[in-house]
């Protein structure tokens, strides 16, 4: 464990806790993409299968359970909670997210480290996570006023993988870890998708004005 990976995991944990708090306290999921949340459930289920087969550390196990539980909980709130589901921007959240699943799975069948079920699913989860934020970013462009909690949620979510990139650089040079091309490229694509959001988020934070993405 290094400071970059710990910071990344904490940023990721904070992002899902922030989102859950926003939904629970405001009883609203306005501005949040259900499609992105559902993609994240698939990402975590596909990636954390080794939860039952390999024990790395207490931390690793607890964090996997937390990420699976929170992502399922958020989808439950947005789909079934009688008050929250009324606030879902169904007409704006129109990205057909099931379209990205087959290509990611096919790519995982073609490009992977080993051709085993666990490895292909793990690789699939990396590719899917790289594009999972797309529905949310598209919804943001369509949302007139983005509330602070949502903006902070997306910033922390983007920051976590950016910190993981630093973690991989650290591990490659300091721990002489092997090259992890699949993780690196997926992580780069994922972080690159946040580039314009980061730009507008930091600009709004500097000028102390409302976050607004150009349509």
């Amino acid at each position: 464990m290094n400071i970059f990976r710990l910071a990344g995991d904490m940023s990721h944990l904070l992002s899902v806790i922030l989102l859950l708090l926003k939904i629970r306290t405001t009883k609203s999921c306005a501005g949040i993409s259900l499609k992105t949340q559902e993609l994240y459930v698939v990402v975590f289920l596909a990636r954390y299968l080794n939860l039952f087969t390999r024990y790395y550390s207490f931390y690793n196990t607890v964090m996997k359970l937390v990420f699976i539980a929170t992502s399922v909980c958020i989808v439950w709130y947005m789909r079934f909670h009688k008050v929250v589901k009324q606030t879902y921007n169904k007409d704006l959240d129109t990205f057909r997210h099931y379209v990205v699943i087959p290509p990611c799975f096919l790519l995982a069948l073609l490009v992977h480290h080993e051709f085993t079920v666990m490895e292909v699913l793990w690789t699939f989860s990396l590719y899917l996570e790289a594009v999972a934020i797309l529905p949310q970013l598209i919804l943001l462009q369509r949302t007139r006023n983005i509330d602070n909690l949502t903006g902070n949620y997306i910033f922390l979510l983007g920051a976590y993988r950016a910190l993981y990139l630093l973690n991989w650089i650290y591990r490659f040079f300091m721990e002489k870890a092997q090259a992890r091309w699949i993780s690196w490229i997926s992580g780069l694509v994922q972080t690159a998708l946040y580039a314009d959001f980061f730009y507008y988020y930091i600009k709004s934070w500097k000028n102390n004005e409302k976050l607004k993405l150009p349509a």
Binding site: R5, N50, H113, E114, W122, Q178, R180
Partner: peptide
Amino acid sequence: CQSSPVKDEL
């Protein structure tokens, strides 16, 4: 292709 990296990350 290389052996799969250790999955100790989240």
